[in-house]
Structure formats: structure tokens, C-alpha cells
Design a protein around this nucleic acid. Sequence first.
DNA 1: GATGAATGAGCCTTCATTCAT
DNA 2: AATGAATGAAGGCTCATTCAT
Lengths: 201, 201, 201, 201
Amino acid sequence: MPKVGIEPVRKLQLIEATLKSIEANGFQGTTIVTISRLAGMSSGIISHYFGGKQGIIEAAVRHLLEQLKQGLLTRLERGDSQNPMARLMMIVETNFSGFQQSSPATTTWLSFWGQATHDEGLARLQAVNNKRLESNLRYSFRQLITNPVKAAEAARMTAAMIDGMWLRSTLSPAQERNFRDSERLCKEFIHLQVERFGSEV
Amino acid sequence: MPKVGIEPVRKLQLIEATLKSIEANGFQGTTIVTISRLAGMSSGIISHYFGGKQGIIEAAVRHLLEQLKQGLLTRLERGDSQNPMARLMMIVETNFSGFQQSSPATTTWLSFWGQATHDEGLARLQAVNNKRLESNLRYSFRQLITNPVKAAEAARMTAAMIDGMWLRSTLSPAQERNFRDSERLCKEFIHLQVERFGSEV
Amino acid sequence: MPKVGIEPVRKLQLIEATLKSIEANGFQGTTIVTISRLAGMSSGIISHYFGGKQGIIEAAVRHLLEQLKQGLLTRLERGDSQNPMARLMMIVETNFSGFQQSSPATTTWLSFWGQATHDEGLARLQAVNNKRLESNLRYSFRQLITNPVKAAEAARMTAAMIDGMWLRSTLSPAQERNFRDSERLCKEFIHLQVERFGSEV
Amino acid sequence: MPKVGIEPVRKLQLIEATLKSIEANGFQGTTIVTISRLAGMSSGIISHYFGGKQGIIEAAVRHLLEQLKQGLLTRLERGDSQNPMARLMMIVETNFSGFQQSSPATTTWLSFWGQATHDEGLARLQAVNNKRLESNLRYSFRQLITNPVKAAEAARMTAAMIDGMWLRSTLSPAQERNFRDSERLCKEFIHLQVERFGSEV
DNA sequence: GATGAATGAGCCTTCATTCAT
DNA sequence: AATGAATGAAGGCTCATTCAT
């Protein structure tokens, strides 16, 4: 009798081990062995399930992106997704939520980004994610700012500020990180934009 | 006759070769051999002068940081460094100037950042640079915004927006990069902050 | 009810899959997996039935040798096996018959030979086969050539020519292979030997 | 001061180690490690000088082919190369000379042949060698046998007999190998051909 | 009997480092 | 001071074998 459904389980275990390893050892320090050891499995299993190291790395990125996507969807379901300003706040919160669980994902993301410029597959995933954030923001800004050019610019600036806050926090010494403040400032920036340009109707 | 000062020349040539190699081959694709070949020297020379690969990488980062620092100093000397708003504009311009010379430095920076979270030496250098940008901005904002908390927040937001714009541009497909717009939006954000909080005196 | 005789069937299917795989992927490219997949069975079955990869390879060689042996027997039954010259022709035809069915066996044989010098089991099988060909030829030559030394030498030379023609054809580019000619020349050589030494009675 | 000419020396040492390893361990059993250990060097040296395992294997084959070629040239210089029959004898002797030095080359050749069917580079080298033998034989046969078709066939048959004798000897148990006899029979075959068809002028 | 998930030894390759010259 | 030949540890990958089911 075949163990039905063992494959998805193993894959998830290995992806989580990959993220742990990148957090602990960095992107360069992460090898087939560090991953498989963290997962409590043999080294051969990775090629078995993902075709190779490249495969599991991309799978791990997709996993993180999916989590981010689901995080926003969950927030939208719970809250007042019809209210544009509330939706903007949810977007910000979603993008900072990864920080609340210590710095695991943080380091991982940056490692991926650093790799993306020289890795076709990762670059594409990254580009999709970047566009999604900006387009999500633009959608709501347009409901608050009549001038479409201003709305688009507000979205672009907000996206940049979110990423910038996130990047600078990640690169700061641990004790100086203040994600709460970062999140607050991003939200204030959104309010500022809407106050300034929202009345230009 | 001692060949006075031959060492600094060699070192500079090697650092420039390092940056060229990272631009051409990526961080991973850069090896002792690719660097030394680009510099027209032997592979052993790198350990000789920098103690190892790690050494030349850090030296290259220091070189880029120094260039950034000098870029601002040069602009301040040429322009009206007494005018706070003019000085803020110069800071923005300096941080986007790297882009004007194609994407060499761009890729390099991101590679370094990705590496920094797991590299003591790089992390320290990066932290120093991050603080300098924010403190430079804060110094001028304080002359324009009376409320010191607001001035500090404006500096932090501006720094984040600069880095975020830079990051997103770097990760975007080449044809979509628009550094001019990025620079303009950062400047507009500064004006917006000053308009909004500058009159609160 | 015991499934009598299921094992021989499985074994034959696996041996045929082995030959197919060697033909398609080469000796090196043939793995437990390529074989078992071609046979539509699990990879574990091979160790189960043959004790390991080595086992199924030897079984496949035995299978080919047996086919060769049966090929001659069939020809002898059909033809005039009492006529020494006719029997010699049949031996030649049998040894070239493998070629008529494309190049499958061809590649396989050479792979086995290359392996045989460092594989006890294969070497023994190979030696048996070589001796059989020569002794088969000698038996008929003795009925045509009185001098037993000359008969033995004729057998040895004929065997060498058959193998040599076969080898050179196999190693030639596909378009240059001419098995018909090879077979004809071997037959002519036999006639030449008999003409020359057969009358020495 | 660069060690001028060290490269050819190292390459030759490594090629000889490769042949030794194939003789001792077989083609499959020959690895980067077995070669480099036999050469008394590190494993990295092979990729350093030959670009990889494939590179050193092909270099080894070229080495053997070159030896064969030079063997014939040397014989032709020493003997009466103008005499067609003498030249034919030299060709036979050259092709059996490898045997005199124990069975090293013997095993190696067969390993290469077995590999050639699945290796582009080896196949080409092998084809060149095969053609050379046949064309060398044909050249002399034409001076002895007027009928060009018969001369070509004699060349083809002789080439096949040489290879076949060689192959069967290699695959025979050591004690049964009789290279002297093999060589003699090949020579007798040539005489037989010339006796039979040479007078057909 | 039969499966196929999992193992892990062994392979080739890369590359920072060393050191005799 | 400078070279570059040589090293060998470490990486990713393959694949015959094992074994719980």
C-alpha cells in the first residue's frame, strides 16, 4: 500500500528546513547537507523531491510569497475590505507581519533578494511579488486620490517606504530594530498622502 | 630605490577588478581567479595584499562607501551647503548617482547586502553607512522642522524611501527602471514633509 | 492457488527491458530505474529477482548467448546439417543475424565485452561463447580439411574474421555499416580456405 | 621564474596514470581519484590540466593512437617500405606490438571501444583509427592485386582479422593467449590473398 | 510477493589557500 | 615582491541497495 500523500508532507518539511538553514547559516552557508540534516533526512532526498538544490530554493521562495499572499487575504476577509484606507493599513500590516515572529524570514528574504540579480528563476518570482505590492496599493489609493498620476506615485512611494523600512531594519543591529515604529511611519505616510492629495478632486 | 607607493596602486587596481567581476559574473561567480585575471595579476596576489578573498571583498565595500561619502562632500563644496533644503537635495542626488553609470554598483550593493546578515565585517560597514545617511538627513531636517521628533521621523522615512526606491529599481527588469522618477519622488517627499511639519514652529 | 511460473515471466520481461535500456541509453546510462520503468515494475523488483544490478546484467548476457545458440540450432534443424560447408555457412549467418534487427544487440554486445575484462562473471560467459564459435567451426572444417592443424587454424581465422567484421561494423558510423558485405566476405574466406587446403588430402 | 615546460610533463604523467588505472581497475573503476593517486598527485590536478575526466580520457586515447601511428612510421623507416609485402607485414606487426608489453594496452583498448558507442569524442577517434588501418592495408594490397575491388576486399578482410584476433585474445583467459600465433595467422592470410588474387593481372 | 521511499557512499567538479621559486 | 602550480576540502548530484509496509 503506497503511503498516499507522503510527498507533500516531506516537501513541506524540507522547505521549512531550508528556511531555517538560511536563517541560521545564510544563503551561502546553506547546503544540501545543512538542509537535510535540519530536516532529519538524508542528503539524497532533496534531489529526489526537488530535482536539486536550485529546485528547493525556488520552492522555498514560492512558499514565502504564498504566505505573504495568504496573509493579506486573511486580513481582508476578517476586516472591512471595502474601506480603501482600512485596506491600505492591512497591506502595510501584512508586509510587516513577518517581522513579528523573530527575524527568521527577514534574513531569508534579504538573502533571496541578493541572489535574485543572478538567478533567473528567483528574479522572476521577485518581480511578480514587487508588482503585486505596488498594484495592491495603487488599487486602494485610486479610491482615495482622484488624480491617477498622484495615486500611482503614492503607491510607488509607499511600496518603496515599506521595503526600505524593512531593509534598513534587517540590516540594523538587533537591538535597534523597531518594527512597530516602522509600521507606524508607513501608515502615517499613507495618511499624509491622502490628506495632501485626496482633496484635490 | 624603493618602489614607494606601489602597494596602494596595486590594491586599487584589484578592488576595481573585484567590482568589475561582481558586475560581470555576480557575487557567486566572482572568484579569486576572475578578479586577478581582470587585474592582469596572479591569483596569489590577493592573499598577499588582502589576506584572502574575504579581505578584498570588504575592501571593495569600503571603497564603495568611501566613494559615496566623497560624492556628498564634493556636492556640498560645489553647492550651497548652508541651505538646508539644498543640502537635502544633494543627499538624495548623491545616493542616486551610482545609478547613472549603468548598473554596476547596483548589483554589487545588493550582493553585499545579501551577504551582510551573515558576515560580521560587512554588517558593521553596512550599519555605519545606514546611520550616516539617516544622520545626514536628520541634521538638515532639524533646521527646517522645529519638532525634533518629527524631524527625526522625516529623516527615517526619507532614508527608507531612498533605499526602497533603490532596491525596487535594482530588482526590476532593466527596461522598467526609472531612476530619474525615483529621485524626483524622493525629493517631492522631502518637500511634502517640510510643507506639512515645517510650519509647526 | 499458487501462481506457478510467474517468476520466469517477470524475469524475462526484466531482461528484455534491460536490453532495451542498454540499446536506448547505453551501458552507463542504464540504471535500475531505467530498466524497471521500461518493464513497468518497481525498482526493488530487480534486487528481488536478480540479487542486484550485476545479477540482471549477467542474466541479460546469458539470454543473448542462449539466443545465439538457439539461432544456430534452428538453422541446423531446417537446413542440411550433414553438409559441412552448408553448416559453416549457417554458423556465419547465425553470427550476423543479430545485425538484421537494427543495432540493438550490437551496442549491447560491445558494452558487455568492454565490461568483461574486469568482471569475473561476464568474462567466463564470454570465454565460453568464444570457444563455442571456434569449436563449431573447427568441427566442420575438419570434415573438409584433412590436415587437423590447418583445419584448426582455418577455424581460428574464421572466428577472428567474423568477430572483427562485427566489431568494425559496430564502431563505424551507421551509414557506413554493411553487414551483407561482411557476411559475404566471411563466407568467401571459408571457401578460399577450403579450396586452398581442402585438396591437400 | 615559471617552471617552463612543466605542463607537458605533468600531462604525460597523468595520461600514463590513466592507462595504468584502466588496466588495473577497468574503465568503470577508473575515477579521478584512482588516476591522481597513481600519479602521486591531488585530485584537483586533472580538472586543472584536462578540464575534467572526459578530457583526460580522450587525451589518453589520443596518446595510444599516436603511439600506434608512430610505431608504424618507425618500422617503415627501418625496413624496406618500398616493398608492398614487407609493408603489409609491418602493419600487422605494428598492430600486434602492443601485446608484447603484457596486457596493459589490451584491456585499455577494449574499454575504450566499449565506451565509444556512447561517447561522441571517443567514437570519432576510433573511427579515424579504423579507417587508417584499412586504408594503409589497401594501399599496399593495390600494388599486389590488380583488381581494385579484390584489393579493397583483401584490405577489409585483413583489418577484420587483425581486430578479431586481437579481440579474441584479449577476451581469452591469460594462459590461452597466443599473440605470436595470431600475428602469424594474419600474415599467412595476407600471403594467401596475394597468392590467390595477385596473379589475376 | 511486490512496492517505492529513503538512504548514503561515491562520483566529478570548483576554488580559496599555500608555498617553493 | 610576485608568481602560479598544486592542493584538498567541500559542494551538488547519482544511483544501487535496503526495508517497512
